[in-house]
Design a protein around this nucleic acid. Sequence first.
DNA 1: CATGTAACTAACTATTTGTTTAGATCGTCA
DNA 2: TGACGATCTAAACAAATAGTTAGTTACATG
Lengths: 238, 238
Amino acid sequence: MTDGKSEANRDEQIIDIGLAAPVDNSRPRVGRDSEGTKRDILLAAMHEFSEYGDGGARIDRIARRANANKSLIYSYFGNKEELYARVLREAYTQIRAGERELNLDKLEPREAIRALMKFTMEHYLRAPWFLRLLATENLRRGQTVRQIDKISELQSPLITQLKQVLDRGVASGAFKNDMNPVDLYILMASLFYFPISNSHTLPVVFGAQVTDPKWREHYLKSVQDMVVRHLENAPGGA
Amino acid sequence: MTDGKSEANRDEQIIDIGLAAPVDNSRPRVGRDSEGTKRDILLAAMHEFSEYGDGGARIDRIARRANANKSLIYSYFGNKEELYARVLREAYTQIRAGERELNLDKLEPREAIRALMKFTMEHYLRAPWFLRLLATENLRRGQTVRQIDKISELQSPLITQLKQVLDRGVASGAFKNDMNPVDLYILMASLFYFPISNSHTLPVVFGAQVTDPKWREHYLKSVQDMVVRHLENAPGGA
DNA sequence: CATGTAACTAACTATTTGTTTAGATCGTCA
DNA sequence: TGACGATCTAAACAAATAGTTAGTTACATG
């Protein structure tokens, strides 16, 4: 299962998981450079934990990938558990930063919802490593996320935007369904999380071409229509 | 991370994951009884792999839980990898068997969709271990499910039912949106998979009460309305 | 230049864990 | 009965792995 050889091979095959390169050379390294190394370790650990999960992650591989040493990892991060916690926090930070780039202010409410949905789908597609980390943390029953402090920072900035869009929609009469922004966020996340995170089993079991860009485009359009209509109509139907 | 003591504790806390009891005593055991033991091992392995994932699963614990011996496991199943494959197949078999109990023939198409959605949600809630196994297999990039033969048996019987409901709905004029049954299945699965499989991170990050039966009831009603309306309307919006 | 401190490394330890081996036990049927 | 094969077990092996230790290197500062 956790066979050394096959894992090594697997590691080679995966060239890019959408994270920064194993070692970050963007900032020039002068002499001893703890900050750079520390960041390299964190990035390598993000890669490792997303790739292999908590049980399968290996400190040795993280060290190798970061061009660092095991005991350096321990001196910086304490132990594997704490390193994982740092990874999880950093993952949320990065993903939320990405979400902050969307601006819906100028769009008519219906169009804003469509744009938000398109953005969400593409965001998930861009960062499969984050979905993997989410899956891992939920398999751990949220053991670690519960302990992270300043949890509010983990909350998506999309919630705020969503609230504004909904308010505008209700005010203008475009939306009759006065949904809770968090519930709407969950609804939208649901629609993209499943087909993307399960993109390995779905084609095998159902022959569903969920990885085909054509399918995705069609799916997006379909659920955009569905959700917008859902908001346009008062709950309970009729 | 995979600390012996804490895992032992964790094991105690989890009394019931919805699987059959660790050791199946329903059938009387007479003398040496390979079939019973073999089944016990499989059930124990299902528990173990759903609980700890592929990397975290331990043969020792499986043996203990099955009241069996490690080398017995090896003689029956070859190795950990093959045991995992058997677990995955058995999991699909069990879950699909459960899905076969739903009968929508007598229901009016709109009501049938609502019933199917309610059933799907409850099915997922009843079998969280299956969602965990799905998540695990997707973290493995479907490595194993791809190798299972007779994959068609893994496909959900709900697809067939869904097709009939859709056909009836289109025929009667109730549904104007002629959706592909597989796509509709994915849509419905999406809506319940995310809030249930991520039920450990969502409350922490968003304060969403996704585990509260009240929330679930409300959510179900909302997405039932949404999907039925989606089917009633022609794609592209009128 | 000497010295203290932080960055870094190699080698080691203790434990865990998948897997194997050699053998004991039991039911069966010739 | 007795011997054969299937069932089952205890103990051990070898590889992997989290974590530690003891030491070396580079740099800044007085």
